[in-house]
Design a protein around this nucleic acid. Structure first.
Lengths: 107, 107
DNA sequence: TCCTTGGTTAGACGAATGTCTAAACAGACA
DNA sequence: TGTCTGTTTAGACATTCGTCTAACCAAGGA
């Protein structure tokens, strides 16, 4: 859980991450990617899991990527996406109910 | 970490929570409230921590409340807010990078 | 070179968001 | 009752968001 008030700067940065997660499509995209621990998922596979257009999926993937939650790489014809665990972990810790004695939380 | 794809329904519900967290003001409000573990914070105290109007703060608090992240109670003249740990914990778990489950969590 | 497939970018448009001012509601007190 | 303080609600307005279609870029194969 949050143990001390956030600075405005920290709040802006963290809010960017949560904002990216605040859409059902992006959350499902992330779950499809993250479900493959350490693995990668082709965009074509992600697109086929929705009834939305490829352009819309690409847009959502870009939002996730700009937020630093996922990263990608083109490999020949296809583009593969994977999650960035450190970024997800940072957001998770903020909400975690178990005390995390990290980051010199003075108090 | 997310270990399996989310259903559309689950994604919609969870996205509501993350969306509420996706604003710097709301994130700072939550941190101000959550920093008092089990405690409560008066709206007047929250409002004075920002340069925004009381109406705007009230609006953001309502967003957090509708999302189930905080709850409140009027007590005489003042209104007090507190966090709902269970809700924060649910969101945290989804992103948690250190899953308690070892391998083979089939389902 | 041209064509085909996979994926992204650009532009448009209705819906939702964040902020404000003004007004209303709730309680305390003279 | 009236008035003051604390908080929420209503309405307005510019900005941002999610989606689409159309166009473009990247790679492979004839």
């Amino acid at each position: 859980m949050i143990s001390e008030p956030l600075s405005e700067e920290a709040a802006v940065e963290l809010a960017r991450g949560f904002k990216a997660l605040g859409d059902p499509v992006r959350l499902r995209l992330l779950s499809l990617i993250a479900a493959r621990r350490g693995g990668e998922v082709c965009v074509c596979e992600l697109t086929s899991a929705f009834t939305l257009t490829a352009a819309t999926i690409s847009h959502h993937l870009k939002v996730l990527r700009v937020a630093g939650l996922v990263d990608c790489e083109r490999r020949g014809t296809w583009v593969y996406y994977w999650v960035v665990p450190a970024k997800l972990g940072a957001l998770s810790q903020l909400l975690d109910a178990s005390p995390v004695v990290a980051a010199g939380a003075g108090g």
